[in-house]
Amino acid sequence: MKDAPKGGRLAGPEPILGILLLLLLVGLSVASEDFRRPGNYLGMTRFFVEVGLIALPMTLVIITGGIDLSVGSIVALSAVTLGMAWRDAGLSIWAATGLGILVGAVAGLVNGALIVGFRIPPLIVTLATMAAYRGLAVGISHGDSIGGFPSAFKVLGRGFYYLPQGIEIPGQLLYLVVLAIVFRVILARTKTGRQVYAIGLSEPGARYAGAPVDRIKLLLYGASGAMAGLAGAVLSSRVSTATPDLGLLFELDAITACVLGGVSIYGGRGSILGTMLGLLIVGSLKRGLFFLGVEAMDQNIIIGAVLIVAVFAHQVVAPAARNWLAREPHPKEGST
């Protein structure tokens, strides 16, 4: 019975996004000699793994109808915590890393507690904590940048697996793949995952059905903070420094990946695979435009335009197509 809506799963945007990504990669490879260098395809992922780590829990948060704008600031707060715990408090670099991630998780749980406890909309809560956490990061570090980490710490963000012909696979790509599988299993294969969708479709409904709505929300925002903390550690390692201006606009990059990947901002719809495809599309596009000599400001305009088209496709074209299919003599079952 659980296998019933097999066809319905294909009704999502993932196949189309997959084809788009493929076309994009082929197109950019044809257009740019630098893009089609063998080392580039995997090597470029290291520039967006951190955003990917944040986009995983963000997908679940948005599916519940929420949002987390504070993740970019949590990246900075954990990075600064990590740096100061190592440099000033004399902790080992790995204990400091753990503490940084823990601080991220706590910051996320505070978001969750405010949202669940006081019934304040997530947009407002995380908008406030976005400012507060960034301010805290600047305050405790006095705007200072902390660098000179021990070389073992480089493994997190500057480590590679080397293949023949000098092809480098960034180590952090593996963390993202493993964690994406974990999140995918939770969302698509567990009761909690189904409850996440249920909350997004109708929160009162989910409550009546006995879903532990508050606990799930609290955990999701906590997970969001913890993953932002991990992203902060990877990023500090990759750029060899911990400063309070790390992770600026990461929240928007992560939301962009989600929305492009078909996660509905109204809740109830979306998948980890979609988000990861969205991440890859934005990441490859940025990289390709760079290689084609498009300047940073123009890149942003193009990515903005792609996002608008994607939202239009998801919100207007896709539902229309579903309705049209539903009117066919042999209706395809299984849209939401």
């Binding site: 697996y161 593996l174 599988i181 294969r189």
Partner: peptide, 27 residues
């Protein structure tokens, strides 16, 4: 499929262990 996915996730652990830590300097 459920077991397949879980097996896949679990399989990642030994794969990662086998691959070892990434290197921070090129060979």
């Amino acid at each position: 499929r459920r077991y397949l996915l879980m097996a896949l996730a679990i399989a990642c652990v030994p794969i990662l262990t086998l691959m070892g830590c990434p290197q921070t300097e090129p060979p």
